[in-house]
């Protein structure tokens, strides 16, 4: 059995959870077994995970798991793995997953592969799975040689697939420790898709010259339904909020489309965006290094190019 932890936010699943279940189902197929999904806390329609390939869905409820705590959640996931006899555990490589992968590995003395982007291959009792290393500058094939194995899936790595039908949800009540951390506040930017989950991203750099010019970025993002991002110096001087900074020391993203305007393409910037499926670069300097990493390039003044692109997008959507 493969166990997958499908995280819900405010009771609802996001794409990352559906990707994780799809991935766990594919991993189970490689191993010739089934996949069981675990949900924690109050979740609407947990049985729908059957649609993405779970043959069984467990839910751990109660006040003790209402807020995230890495020790409590680790105990719940490890108990579920023992309950269903799972030796492979799949998580999403998001902020919750990053707090859990290591803990689970230590608890189960498991080999771990954090942030993978492909379905594993099996060789006897070993699993080999590919992950990006050096911030996307290379891939490593990691072989897990232990009895238990913990894998977390990088976002936007595999398409979600519907392969089954809804199943009944079984409640599961393992003994859990009391939380030692207390969540006192959760603040989320409302409206737009958060950067790590965004499929379309429009990003601006120092070439924008100042925060008052961001309208051209925001208009394009709005026309596309994209999330905005920025280069590091722009966040450092406070033109844009810190959570928009992408790159080696900021958020690492892998959207379907990344449009970069007025960004030179320094190696530390590329490290956070080079897993994007398609990259469009707008820069007035034909020698800007970013063009080497781009699929499509526009050599020109972003203050003229972006409004034209925004118009063309609007026409495309209208027609």
């Amino acid at each position: 059995m493969v166990l997958v932890f499908a995280e819900a936010t405010n009771g609802k699943f996001k794409k990352a959870a559906h990707e994780a279940v799809t991935y766990a189902k594919k991993t189970a197929e490689v191993l010739g077994t089934d996949c069981c999904a675990l949900t924690i806390g109050e979740v609407e329609d947990a049985g729908q995970l059957g649609v993405f390939g779970a043959s069984k869905v467990l839910n751990v409820g109660g006040p003790g798991v209402a807020k995230f705590d890495s020790q409590v959640y680790t105990a719940a996931i490890a108990a579920a793995a023992k309950e269903v006899g799972a030796k492979v555990i799949v998580l999403s490589h998001n902020s919750t997953g990053k707090n859990l992968v290591g803990r689970l590995a230590a608890r189960l003395l498991a080999g771990s592969a954090p942030g993978v982007n492909a379905v594993p291959t099996a060789n006897g009792d070993q699993l080999t799975v590919r992950k990006a290393v050096f911030s996307g500058k290379a891939y490593a094939d990691v072989t897990l040689t232990t009895e238990y194995k913990v894998i977390s899936l990088a976002g936007n790595s595999i398409p979600v697939e519907e392969s089954g039908a809804a199943v009944a949800v079984e409640s599961f009540s393992p003994e859990l420790p009391a939380a030692k951390t207390k969540v006192i506040e959760t603040k989320r930017v409302e409206g737009t898709t958060p950067l790590p989950e965004a499929e379309l991203v429009v990003s601006g750099g120092r070439g924008l010259k100042g925060p008052e010019n961001w309208g051209v970025i925001e208009d394009l993002a709005e026309a596309l339904g994209a999330t905005t991002a920025c280069s590091r110096p722009v966040a450092d001087v406070g033109w844009r909020p810190h959570h928009e900074h992408v790159g080696q020391t900021g958020v690492a993203i892998r959207p379907n489309l990344y449009i970069a305007a007025g960004i030179s393409g320094a190696i530390q910037h590329l490290a956070g965006v080079n897993n994007s499926k398609t990259i469009v670069v707008v820069n007035k300097d034909p020698e800007a290094p970013f063009f080497k990493a781009a699929d499509y390039g526009v050599v020109g003044d972003l203050f003229e190019v972006l409004p034209k692109l925004t118009e063309a997008i609007k026409e495309h959507k209208a027609g």
Binding site: Q71, G102, R103, L104, A105, S112, G115, K131, V133, F134
Partner: peptide, 16 residues
């Protein structure tokens, strides 16, 4: 770590 990009060693130590 910016080479392995694991984000896991800290949580492992905490669990141990």
């Amino acid at each position: 770590t910016i080479d392995y990009n694991g984000s896991e060693v800290g949580a492992m130590v905490a669990e141990f």
